[in-house]
Design a protein around this nucleic acid. Structure first.
Lengths: 238, 238
DNA sequence: CAGATATGAATGAATG
DNA sequence: CATTCATTCATATCTG
């Protein structure tokens, strides 16, 4: 897939873009599966620090990773939803809504809102009616009005500073990492099976036996928090 | 060029990539010639549905096709332009920019006043004037610490801020108006009205002086500084 | 078959 | 957060 190169830049020169290592990807995905979507600045820092053990990485990489991953995940999901409706409208085949096809998540099935894995998740129930008008999205997705949770979490209301505490935990065992196991434990990870990769982005070794992310059909999981998409999908083919 | 075979994969096995049929290519190119560059989700849907009659195809294929085609067209053009200027600088031959078969290649930076292909065209990002102070993105850019008056120095402009594009519009519309509607509309996809002018971002103009640094730039860390953290293991599960 | 080229696919990085 | 662009990887096809 995108690999090929085995070396992450690491060198300031050239300025090639970040090339995540497998471990980094794994950890990031793990966090994502646990519900983390839009890490705060602090979280980004922590994650970055943690991932740095596996190769050069900067905060912005983590930031972008989450942004992209989330967006693309959503696109996939939308696509399926859309495809579903398409079928529903066109064909007469009674199919079920696509949003239940939790293929690969080892053990996360997008549990209810109060899932343990939501530590990182920004689902603060805090009031904070900062429902400030959000941007205007003229193009796609005219909806989006429910998820104001995105903003509040950033504010880090002192009342919910529990999120800040995390910081400690992460920094705590920072230099004792020897195994991945340990590493993962630092994070909210808690899964029984170590995230053993839902994706094999190795270099050169194109293991064809795996999905390889045929693109937008690898893993799907509901956002669990918002995302009530209207269905306007991007890849509405299928 | 690969136009040789006309077999579409059809076989999900092996995970072969989509191999467009001639008809599909023709139609796609036609649409492209008509000015379509970045189809919206809806358009992708329609196109996909339409092209499916000629072989297996998914929305993402259409999406990628346009992405790639546009990019490569642009790249090609850039080269030509470059070559042109090279000649211009070296030789004294008064030649005009290479105007190849690319019917419409409105640069995406300068607004094509009346480009022929504007039906689908997504216009370039016009340098919108700062209309009025609008809301700032409070979301991103998690201010690292409001009450922390010690480490404010980290903000060093992120080395990102890369601006690669500006070479394109060099020769923007030297022939504008010479348009010709191609008459190739294989199938109408809202030929006229759809042009997503949705891109009217005229109101969102926040002062360009604003920091572009996406949050993550908070490369600093105040680690154990704050102390006083009670330390709850939010990560370790409830 | 090797090398070159064309192009599908994926994803990091921005931008607004 | 949606959208777009640049790059790179992977593979198909062509060519000699």
């Amino acid at each position: 897939m995108e690999g090929g190169s085995d070396e992450n830049l690491g060198n300031g020169i050239g300025g090639s873009r970040w090339n995540p290592t497998k471990e980094q990807i794994n950890m990031l995905e793990s966090l994502y599966r646990q519900g983390l979507r839009t890490p705060t600045a602090e979280q980004i820092q922590q994650i970055t620090a943690r991932l740095r053990d596996f190769g050069h990485i900067e905060g912005k990489n983590v930031f972008y990773w989450f942004q992209n991953h989330k967006a693309r995940q959503r696109q996939k999901q939308k696509q399926e939803t859309f495809a579903f409706y398409n079928r529903f409208l066109h064909a007469t085949t009674p199919v079920f809504p696509p949003y239940q096809n939790v293929v690969c998540s080892p053990c996360y099935i997008s549990p209810p809102r109060n899932d343990p894995a939501v530590f990182y998740q920004q689902h603060p129930k805090v009031p904070l009616p900062t429902a400030s008008g959000s941007f205007k999205r003229s193009r796609l997705i005219p909806q989006m009005s429910i998820n104001d949770s995105s903003k509040q979490q950033q504010q880090q209301q002192p009342t919910i500073q529990k999120y800040n505490n995390n910081l400690h935990c992460i920094y705590t065992a920072r230099n004792s990492s020897s195994h991945h196991q340990e590493t993962l434990d630092l994070f909210p990870i808690h899964p029984t099976g170590i995230l053993e990769s839902s994706r094999n982005i190795d270099e050169a070794g194109h293991d064809q036996n795996e999905i390889k992310n045929p693109s937008f059909c690898a893993e799907k999981e509901r956002d669990a928090n918002n995302d009530s998409h209207p269905f306007f999908d991007f890849f509405g083919g299928n």
